[in-house]
Write a protein that binds this DNA or RNA. Structure first.
Lengths: 158, 158
DNA sequence: TACTAACATTGGCGCCGCCAATGAATATAG
DNA sequence: CTATATTCATTGGCGGCGCCAATGTTAGTA
């Protein structure tokens, strides 16, 4: 809980305080911890949200398509869909036109579940950015987006 | 390489685009990948840097002290010190005044190694923030620091 | 002298992003 | 129309990271 603090004052080697990648990494670990704990408190998981969102916004689709849109590895998607199916939030039905395919459909309960998860995660994001003004939140978002875009294109060092 | 891109345009569910924690997490994964690859290219590791830095800046110390300052779990420190010892970058000597303790000392070669790692990581951090101006880098650093500080204090939701 | 604490070490857990190999079903080429 | 290649869901595993518990040894303390 306190070990992910970036700066421990005079206990922190100066060289570490210069590492942005370290700061980003530790802050990401903090936010992941907060959000995963909040989701686990209601028996949910990051991927539940991301899969339900993809289904709600893009409609029924094959697992391969869902994996692509939700950015979840198809290998990991299987377990996620099993859990969502157990909860009654999605339906998995074989595609009559292509028997290799499963058609994944979100249920009415799934829509409600998605709203629930969305609420929880909104609260989490508000909590994370609590010390920032609205402008600063937007700035942080924009700066990170630019870094992310940049690193998405040129993964190697110059 | 491209799967850690936060925004895939119209292929990305809108709900995901609102999640700052997701953006932070993906960007952190990118920066970690870049830096760990750069370090691995010279047979090094994050913890090598962090431990050598702690030793160089605070002087010889017990493993427990090093673990505290370098923010490396003492469990994981053992392997790191073994590797650093094999490279001749540190010395591990039993403390004569307290036989439970090992005194870790950085060697001259260790100082040189630290300079090398420092150079690599500086290049990495420059690369990461390449699209940002100096002002924007400072802003990003400041915003993340405030979030990190905030989350270091109140880990739970309100 | 008995009890407690510090120390180094081993082994393991959970989360995350990632990849390879399998078998079934389908599309495509010769 | 048969052989080959491709798509799909599924299984199982890998490496990195932050984290924790249990062990045996040694040292301070009551």
């Amino acid at each position: 809980m306190d070990d992910l603090r970036f700066d421990h004052g005079d206990q922190t080697p100066e060289r570490l305080r210069a590492q942005l990648s370290r700061l980003v990494g530790m802050t990401a670990a903090q936010t992941q911890r907060v959000s995963s704990e909040a989701l686990r408190a209601i028996g949910a998981h990051k991927d539940h949200f991301v899969v339900l969102a993809a289904l709600a916004e893009f409609g029924p689709a094959s697992q391969a398509a869902v994996a692509g849109r939700a950015r979840v590895y198809k290998s990991d998607l299987v377990a996620v869909l099993n859990e969502l199916e157990d909860g009654g939030w999605i339906r998995r039905a074989p595609d009559p036109t292509d028997k290799r395919r499963n058609v994944i459909t979100i249920t009415a309960a799934g829509d409600a579940r998605l709203a629930e998860l969305d609420g929880v995660l909104s609260a989490v994001n508000n909590h994370i950015t609590a010390p920032l003004t609205a402008n600063e939140r937007a700035q942080l978002f924009s700066l990170l987006t630019r870094v992310n875009d940049h690193l998405s294109g040129s993964p190697d060092l110059p």
